[in-house]
Design a protein around this nucleic acid. Structure first.
Lengths: 238, 238
DNA sequence: TAGTGGTCTAGACCACGGT
DNA sequence: CCGTGGTCTAGACCACTAG
């Protein structure tokens, strides 16, 4: 086991980050000033500033000259398009149900993304899920990907119910990018019944390709979202 | 007229930024090390670091422990929204028309993004455009932002008709991130008439906040897109 | 005027990369 | 080994906000 010493500024940054995320510190509140942090943790202003600057860079606080470090308002949205996935963004109020469990299928004719030869030579895994916020179904999600390097995927349950967590923890596969195509459409009878909305309600249709750190493994998805109450959030920072 | 003294680290940062943009320094080259900068400009490492850290944050350089500050190959792709076919597939077949030219307005009550104090204390600039692919209008775009640090913005035409090119080249302002909220909606009478579609056609409504490298300058936008023929593409790499 | 964040100096020790 | 960037100390002066 490698013993890594976490820098002081990171410890302090993460302390406040956790407290903001947990709701112990609320939007509008002010964090301790730089000088207060210096006393509290026995550090110098350089170190205190580094912690605060990082929090600012990540969008948690706003620093106001002459006033202090104010915790920013964070809206709740689903955050589906960012690489981190669903469960993390929407809190604990989410549930996922299988409509079709993972199994092998023939590769569909993807009209949008082209599939590499290596991908198409391997079997295709497919599954389909329905995602809820509270009791309301908000999204139908369907995924396809090559079995290439994913032994026993079909027979193993997802770690904590999360697809991406399973890829990461069991197979060390990380998402390193994505391409998306977005369309507004009217729900057909099939989607409408699953999302418990009327046929003809406007829905957001997302075709997505997640690019992974493993050669010739991409995750292809089709998402159909009822955005009426829960718009899709998307954040890019850096 | 307020005489603002530009901080030393900013002068140095912008010196190298301009040289990179002008091609005097090429991708793969290394910038002077922190200690070399200290000697060259008679500053301390703190100041040299601040300049280099800013260049890194904006994606111009990569800092490698034990090696140095390497100029990056291409600017980091931020996954900004682009209409598929706008610049590539449609060739030069793209046109933008003003519906409302840039002028000062009172800040709207943004229901989605919270505006910082500094932003709201400065006047708000607003403009509204209609974007075409060929002869077909495909997007209504409306933007708001603080005039903070944007002297003469309203009176100057856009460089090559591009808003972001103007920000970058005239004011050295770069987009370093974005937050978006996506919704599928039915076109109201106003939007429908501009996009030449029937009222009730599904459209993609995007609320977007572009975060810039300038403190307290964000670009807020509302986009209404007819995605029937031209879906919105979105790419995120890294 | 007191307190805050913004900029800056002049040092120090460390971990990492290449020789 | 030396030079690089990463972390950190202990101060300083300034500009801004608010009472």
């Amino acid at each position: 086991m490698i013993q890594e010493k976490e820098p002081r500024y990171l410890q302090i940054k993460n302390t406040y980050k956790r407290n903001i995320l947990k709701g112990k510190i609320n939007p509008g509140d002010y964090l301790p000033s730089e000088n207060e942090l210096c006393k509290k943790y026995s550090i110098t202003r350089t170190t205190a500033r580094k912690a605060l600057e990082d929090l600012q860079k990540e969008g948690y606080i706003e620093r106001i000259h002459g006033k202090g470090s104010k915790v920013k308002e964070r809206r709740q949205s689903l955050g589906l398009l960012n690489v981190k996935g669903f469960s993390e963004a929407a809190g604990n109020n989410v549930r996922t149900e299988f409509i079709v469990k993972p199994k092998n299928v023939v590769w569909p004719n993807s009209t949008i993304f082209s599939i590499s030869e290596v991908e198409s030579k391997n079997p295709c895994i497919h599954f389909k899920r329905l995602r809820f916020v509270g009791k309301a179904p908000v999204m139908v999600e369907e995924n396809w990907f090559s079995q290439h390097g994913l032994k026993d995927f079909i027979d193993t349950p997802f770690i904590e119910g999360s697809f991406f967590k399973t890829l990461s923890q069991k197979y060390l596969i990380e998402i390193i990018g994505s391409e998306q195509e977005l369309r507004a459409e009217l729900a057909n009878q099939n989607i409408a019944s699953k999302l418990k909305i009327k046929e003809g309600t406007p829905i957001l249709h997302i075709s997505i390709k997640f690019i992974t750190n493993k050669q010739d493994l991409n995750i292809y998805g089709e998402l159909f979202c009822n955005t009426e109450k829960y718009p899709i959030g998307n954040q890019y920072i850096l």
